[in-house]
């Protein structure tokens, strides 16, 4: 009985669902607070993202006349579902190991594209020209960062796979287990190019400056989100909070999933690692940069992260015999 219920528990409460949402909103709160401090501001209270979400639930929501209303209303649900499923796959060192039945690294890679797809569908269905521009930009951005992301994941999968006697392992549990036994990959110089590649991918994946091009407020008025209001907008916020946890959690899993032991301590350690990763790759980056143009972002990704990713792959393959 309990065995049968556990997927639901995992999906709705822990580590997906409520826990991931709370985690994501907390991360966002910290992000806003730290950004405020970097700009000599006091900033909103840490719980502001929670408050915003509750507020949106109390607001009317409207569908623009030009929109294809059904698609428009369903798009955020698709996004949230995708991310909730993705959250299931993220192992929390010492606390939770996802069952192999839920999926592996490759499934996660696909699920990570769901929010962008949801935004694209929503933007296209909204009937606003800005939504349409947002759509095409979102698409270009995906094309740009998916390559380096794949290369970074592949590097880790190969590293772990080769070391454990196979070719490449896409099992997240396996990746965690390997690092718990042999130390975090973060401290292996061979993996550093992969780490940097992944760091480059995070801001684009999460859609923050300098890569918030599809949602650029001052250019195309928040693009796909322009026409959303009330609960639907709230759902998109939930989606982006979940995505925050998934992407950062993935980073932690890939490179530093070690845990100190003890349930609460491990949980706190996981959240702390996410926070550090976020401040380094999101908050500081978005505070210190301006937005790039889509063509600049595109060529940037095809130059540096792509090259680094390839380098990392070569490095992993060439060093396998001399551990």
């Amino acid at each position: 009985m309990l065995e049968m219920l556990s997927p639901f528990f995992h999906l709705l409460l822990f580590p997906g669902g409520l826990f991931a949402l709370a985690c994501g909103l907390l991360l966002k709160g910290v992000d806003r607070k730290v950004a405020a401090r970097l700009q000599r501001r006091i900033g909103p209270p840490l719980h502001q993202p929670f408050v915003d979400l509750i507020k949106l639930w109390h607001k009317d929501s409207s569908v623009p006349e030009t929109a294809q209303s059904r698609v428009f209303a369903w798009a955020p649900h698709v996004g949230v579902t995708g991310m909730a499923l993705a959250a299931l796959l993220i192992p929390i060192g010492g606390v939770y190991t996802p069952s192999g039945a839920y999926g592996d690294l490759l499934v996660l890679l696909y699920l990570l594209a769901v929010p962008a797809v949801a935004l694209m569908i929503g933007g296209a269905a909204s009937g606003s020209p800005f939504g349409a521009i947002g759509f095409s930009r979102e698409m270009s951005m995906m094309l740009a960062y998916e390559g380096p992301l794949l290369l970074a994941l592949l590097s880790v999968a190969l590293k772990v796979g080769l070391a454990t006697g196979g070719v490449a392992t896409f099992s997240l549990a396996e990746i965690v287990r390997y690092q718990q036994a042999h130390g975090a990959l973060l401290f292996d110089p061979v993996m550093w190019p992969a780490v940097v590649t992944f760091l480059f991918v995070i801001p684009a994946n999460l859609g923050v400056v300098p890569f918030d091009i599809p949602e650029a407020e001052s250019e195309i008025l928040e693009g796909p989100l322009l026409e959303y209001s009330g609960k639907e907008l709230g759902l998109f916020q939930i989606m982006s909070a979940l995505k925050m946890v998934v992407v950062l959690g993935l980073g932690v899993t890939l490179f530093c999933p070690t845990a100190p032991g003890g349930l609460l301590l491990s949980l706190a350690w996981f959240i702390f690692k996410c926070l550090v990763l976020m401040v380094a790759s999101v908050t500081v980056v978005r505070s210190a940069t301006g937005r790039l143009r889509i063509d600049q972002a595109f060529s940037f990704y095809f130059k540096w992260p792509e090259a680094l990713g390839v380098a990392s792959l070569i490095l992993v393959l060439t060093t396998r015999n001399f551990p």
């Binding site: 405020a36 909103p44 209270p45 408050v51 915003d52 607001k59 928040e222 322009l226 959303y228």
Partner: peptide, 21 residues
């Protein structure tokens, strides 16, 4: 701007009328 920082009141300046209170 930082000197008046309405964010500490929970406010956010939004770009779309659909998001406004």
């Amino acid at each position: 701007i930082s000197r008046y920082d309405v964010e500490r009141l929970g406010c956010k300046y939004c770009g779309s009328p659909k998001h406004a209170d």
